[in-house]
Amino acid sequence: MADGTATRSGLLDTARRAAESVADPEMPMLTLADLGVLRGVDLAGDGTVTATITPTYSGCPAMAAMRDDLVARLRDHGFPAVRVRVSLHPAWSSDWITPRGRRALAEHGLSAPGPAPHRGGPVPLTLLPVRRDLACPRCGARDTEPVSEFGPTACTALYRCASCLEPFQHVKEV
Rank of each mutant, 00 (worst) to 15 (best):
P25A: 13
P55H: 10
T7N: 12
T54M: 11
L30G: 01
E107S: 13
L165E: 14
S9Y: 09
C155W: 02
P122K: 11
R142S: 13
A162Y: 01
M66R: 06
E166M: 03
A2C: 08
V82G: 04
R142H: 12
L127V: 12
V147Q: 10
E173N: 06
H170F: 03
E20S: 06
A2T: 14
A44P: 05
P167W: 01
L128C: 04
P28K: 09
R160V: 15
A65R: 13
T50M: 08
R8Q: 15
H89S: 12
V86Q: 07
R17G: 07
A116I: 08
G120T: 05
H77C: 13
V71P: 01
R67T: 15
L11G: 05
A162C: 11
S163N: 11
T7L: 15
D42M: 05
R131F: 07
G10V: 03
E20L: 02
R100H: 09
R103P: 00
R83F: 02
R138V: 03
D24I: 07
D42V: 10
H108T: 11
G151H: 04
V174G: 11
V130H: 14
V22Q: 02
D143H: 14
S21H: 00
T156A: 11
S111K: 02
T50D: 05
G78K: 07
P122T: 12
L88R: 12
I53G: 09
R73G: 00
